[in-house]
Design a protein around this nucleic acid. Sequence first.
DNA 1: CGCAATATTGAGTTGGTTCAAACTACGTGG
DNA 2: CCACGTAGTTTGAACCAACTCAATATTGCG
Lengths: 241, 241
Amino acid sequence: MLATSFAATSDLGVHALTDERMPLYERDALAERLAHGTVRSLKTKEHLFCEGDVANHVYRVEVGHICIYRMMPDGRRQVVDFAYPGDIIGLGALGDHADSAQAMEATIVRAMPLATLRELAQADSRLGMKLYEALSRELMAARELLFTVSQRTAAERIAAFLLALSRRAERRGENPHEFVLPMTRMDIADFLGLTIETVSRTLTKLRHDHVIDLEQCILVSIKKPGALAQLAQGGDIRSRN
Amino acid sequence: MLATSFAATSDLGVHALTDERMPLYERDALAERLAHGTVRSLKTKEHLFCEGDVANHVYRVEVGHICIYRMMPDGRRQVVDFAYPGDIIGLGALGDHADSAQAMEATIVRAMPLATLRELAQADSRLGMKLYEALSRELMAARELLFTVSQRTAAERIAAFLLALSRRAERRGENPHEFVLPMTRMDIADFLGLTIETVSRTLTKLRHDHVIDLEQCILVSIKKPGALAQLAQGGDIRSRN
DNA sequence: CGCAATATTGAGTTGGTTCAAACTACGTGG
DNA sequence: CCACGTAGTTTGAACCAACTCAATATTGCG
């Protein structure tokens, strides 16, 4: 049930466990199979699967972005992960899906049946180990997010979130100081356990303090990475570069 | 990195995923090996391992209770799990431990080297699958807790927590409507992302509303399970039985 | 261009925190 | 066995960060 290896949440937080993280699936039997897997296209807001659906595939995002979340009957929503191209979704599901996966924009994924995955893992115990490790990392990411949501202030959460996105951009070989937010304020809010208003206010505050810059609401430039890191840790802002 | 299969957190929450849960390790090669594993005794507050320690064993709690948590440099603490007798700790650790494990009282565990675990999994692919499933459940539990902490009010969190403990008691063949809290208010607070004062106040409120009863601060009797469940869901209390 | 969806900003409210003080349980040693 | 000390818990009152409600401003799409 979640984006493996490159998940945004993965390194949300202080300990930056994730810098040791590398693409798991490359050169894997898994990746090879996926390369020939069924392609599925999703429109913006279309669901890849929903809470309660029987889980019978894993997916790799090829193009676009997917939001993994869970809802309460009364409408409260918890976003659990954001999947980027290359990320694998649906690992860890036993029986039914416990979360829903929705395309945040026009998105293409490749699907692979769980049965096939099981066969591969049976045949190649190294793959089994990798899947296990991938799941471990998911677990760490989930706990990191738990920590963030449970213990940090709004400003600290946003700072940690932006830093996680920055590190992710870096890992993907993109500019870590300037990247696009594929998610809406609502997604961010539901991810961090805040309201859209608080997300917005906190971002504008960071902008006014010249820690970041924002264009078109979606293009983030990190101007003072040090200040942002300091903030994420719980320190006061002050003018670090 | 966590208490498998019987973890208290496991079913914290609405969807009660956990009722499908059964003891994983019974009749396993794992359980057999553990039965002959090294015994280790811990005094109250003694650590089994700390954040940053190299992870080279998994442990099964035999007697007592263990608290798994993570700390920030400034002292903020997030409790991630409570391990009961039968629970397995330390699965999912890759390299170093990301959490600390501390005995909440005089506790006995059995240890098994990770190397042995890997061998066993290599030899018996069913065991590998079980470990994978155990980890999946940990992940679900972590997300359930995330959801609880992120979206629920203090009263809802406490209600969900008590219900989780109740279900756990039931699974262990104990009285689900009367059980002892092995953890302090501080542990509960750090688990649910609240302060000890709020935990205390919320418990006394539940007592005054005759939803629960409390003796010696540690013996909980659930008087109105329905009201508690209602509350956990986000509904108002009202006098359900 | 004009509309609908998303984001920002402002003002007032509140749930949970913080700070502080009293109370309870319990282990220790006299 | 009881007096004492300590750690843990409860309770109260003031405060504040984030929420709610409401209005305005963007953005992007048909």
